[in-house]
């Protein structure tokens, strides 16, 4: 029973709000001896695990630090190229930390605008007339609930598959949006929501949900 995140997409498809509520943090650290028994590869300026899943290090994880020195992109923070460092035998044994890659804001904006045409396509593909777009999208590990207001704003909640009462929560978030974003005279429509009051109220709403309060 977890709410992972909340997204609000404006009528024109831009991400105007995003809040990550619970982000499962998966990090695993291990000492390695030469030769390295997992395959690494650089992709999109990141070093990711290509093959060889073991000890909680999974395919797709990103190299986070080498011997405790954080890695940004391909380089360690002391300016050494991480891949080259790992290739050299004299540097062993070496401690590597891997973690699940975090989504950057740009990626989130990109994904949000990708959902927009999917939603529209779904409503057109429908065999029945007058269908809405995607309301629920379910996967192995999460469920996405989407609620589109009459004005075209989309509110989305990414939650655990077992989470109940998401529909009610969506309506409550809509009320918060109407109250704390739209009634703020300094908020201009269609722009990203940077209103502290909205954040605060949203957080307290989510806390209530976590405590299992049902009559929100």
């Amino acid at each position: 029973m977890v709410i992972y995140g909340i997204y609000i997409v404006s009528k024109s498809g831009g991400l105007i709000f995003n809040y990550d509520n619970v982000v499962p943090k998966i990090e695993s650290e291990r000492k390695f001896t030469y030769p390295l028994d997992i395959k690494l590869r650089s992709e999109n300026k990141k070093i990711i695990v290509e093959f060889g899943q073991k000890d909680g290090i999974q395919v797709g994880h990103v190299l986070n630090s080498v011997n405790g020195i954080p890695v940004t992109g391909l380089q360690m923070d002391n300016g050494v190229n991480a891949l080259e460092f790992i290739e050299k035998e004299e540097n062993y044994p070496v401690t590597l930390q891997f973690a699940r890659p975090k989504m950057t804001t740009n990626e989130k904006i990109f994904l949000a605008s990708m959902f927009y045409p999917l939603f529209a396509i779904a409503s057109q593909l429908s065999p029945e007339q007058k269908s809405s777009g995607i309301e629920v999208l379910e996967a192995d590990t999460f469920r996405l609930n989407c609620f589109q207001t009459l004005t075209g704003v989309k509110l989305m909640i990414i939650s655990d598959r077992t989470q109940t009462g998401v529909d009610v929560l969506l309506r409550r978030i809509y009320e918060l949006y109407a109250d704390y974003a739209l009634k703020n005279p300094f908020y201009s429509l269609e722009m990203p929501i940077r209103c502290e009051l909205f954040d605060v109220n949203l957080k307290s709403l989510l806390e209530q949900i976590e405590k299992g309060v049902n009559n929100i």
């Binding site: 009459l150 309506r171 949006y177 109407a178 109250d179 739209l182």
Partner: peptide, 16 residues
Amino acid sequence: GIRLIEDFLAKTGTGR
């Protein structure tokens, strides 16, 4: 009006 409508819809939950 363009802001208030959202409040109206959120609080009354009326349809189109």
